[in-house]
Design a protein around this nucleic acid. Structure first.
Lengths: 267, 267
DNA sequence: GAACGTAGGGTTGTCAACAACTGAACACAT
DNA sequence: ATGTGTTCAGTTGTTGACAACCCTACGTTC
């Protein structure tokens, strides 16, 4: 009997034997979109930088068609800006964006603790283990003074939170919001910086969850997001080359007409 | 002096004279995406219907390129599903989606009252006037037993709420959530139906806002969304042709592997 | 009679070429 | 010197065509 084929523990060995898992074939557009998101997250496509699509397509080894389709996706997510006939640019986040993003996160993330604690005890343990791992990653990164790694672990921690929150739509939205949070860092700071407070804050999250205290989790999360905004906005924007704003300006230099609240692109 | 050129009231006459408003040129992709969204909202692209892209492109009078780009946008918004090589299909909403959507709305909309009431008094009056207009539209529609018109006014009411809530991201997200709500109706009911309770519920919203009572607004909104879910799920799904599910199924008929929460497409 | 293998129609995914547009540089007139 | 008009290179927006692929239906074999 190969009913317990691999040595993996309970969770992953739930896969049936004798029935092959379907081959996961993602479309080219998916792949490109993922690649672009990665590039945005790791900073190889910095905010405001205007890349030509021919160049990008060549780098990715695809033609312009699929690339353009992927670009539209990231545009819908609000990560990219496509000014008419001027190539693409990664969105530059303004202080207003920082507040906007964190306000939205504050509507959602505090509630996630409750949702996770509402899950069956077995799953709950898994979640806690996963989140604990991310916190350890953060601690290691802090010790090595590796701001990049710290940031990545931070992303994964909150991604996990959203994924286990149980809502497809929410997870998708949070994924975007987190990338945008990263973009805020890029837009506000010159370089990655290690925020020392970050780690104890996240240790406290896991503690609260382990104690089953949704209330405390909620409070902590609100405080964390609040602190995050202050950290991001404390650093003056300095003299950054803020190309996106200029590119975004469909309205040359006229103050936005007040009678129409129009979203930058589509929707 | 033509400083007050038109007879319009204070709000819109804020436009400067002697300086022309810039010509608003939206890209073709934007136009197509808008058109598609419209078609989804008004039901001319019903959930599950599988249209060929050549046919669609012909109808819209564009070539397949821009159409495909627009499709990617709607896909990112979660309104469309693009199974590999099988055309496009409007997403069919399941009962789980109904709960998901309304849970998310319940995180956001109750808070909007507070945000609107926090605005300067002048704006507040404008908002109330606008929302009042929508409610009147709803009342007229109810009197004429016009479910379609009622639904449209409902959408505009909540769109307005989100727009005046003051967050770009939130307005965008809510716009999508509202279209999805409409899709829920299409997916659950055979035809539009007039929900009689809807109108008094919305009258109460405006009343609460007029009274400056954010607390009451919050309670009312939660109750409304709750009722909405019950209304939608009360109707048994009946024997609907549910094509999307079959198309969506990347995994032929194996129960979702538990170790990976994977979103249907991209992100 | 059921399952397998095979051909056909039609659709999508990708590509490369063309046309339209933009921004910058330069010359010229006021 | 400032501003206007023109030219030009480079880029994007759009299109049509080709190849790859999926689904269906039919014929064949056991």
């Amino acid at each position: 009997m190969s009913t317990r084929s691999s040595g993996l523990s309970g969770l992953t060995s739930a896969r049936q034997v004798g029935r092959l898992a379907p081959v996961r074939r993602t479309s080219t557009v998916d792949l490109i979109a993922d690649r672009l998101r990665e590039a945005v997250v790791d900073g190889s496509l910095p905010p405001g930088a205007a890349l030509g699509e021919a160049e990008l397509a060549f780098q990715l080894g695809v033609s312009r068609g699929p690339l353009r389709e992927a670009m539209q996706r990231l545009t819908a997510e609000g990560l990219l800006v496509i000014p008419r006939r001027r190539g693409l640019a990664v969105r530059t986040m303004t202080p207003e964006d920082v507040r906007d993003i964190h306000w939205l996160r504050a509507r959602i993330e505090p509630e996630l603790g409750r949702r996770i604690l509402a899950r069956p005890i077995a799953e709950r343990k898994t979640v806690l283990a996963e989140l604990g791992t991310e916190v350890k990653r953060m601690q290691r990164a802090l010790k090595k003074d590796d701001a990049r790694a710290l940031g990545d672990a931070y992303l994964d921690f909150h991604r996990g939170l959203a994924a286990w929150g149980g809502s497809i739509r929410l997870a998708r939205m949070m994924a975007t919001l987190l990338i945008e949070t990263r973009l805020c860092t890029f837009s506000m700071y010159e370089h990655f910086e290690v925020a020392v407070d970050l780690v104890p804050e996240h240790v406290a999250f896991v503690d609260a969850l382990a104690a089953g205290d949704a209330e405390r989790f909620e409070t902590l999360m609100c405080a964390h997001l609040d602190a995050e905004v202050r950290r991001l906005l404390a650093e003056p924007v300095a003299a950054k080359v803020d190309d996106t704003d200029r590119l975004l300006a469909e309205t040359p230099d006229e103050p936005q007409p007040l009678d129409r609240l129009d979203l930058p692109e589509g929707i």
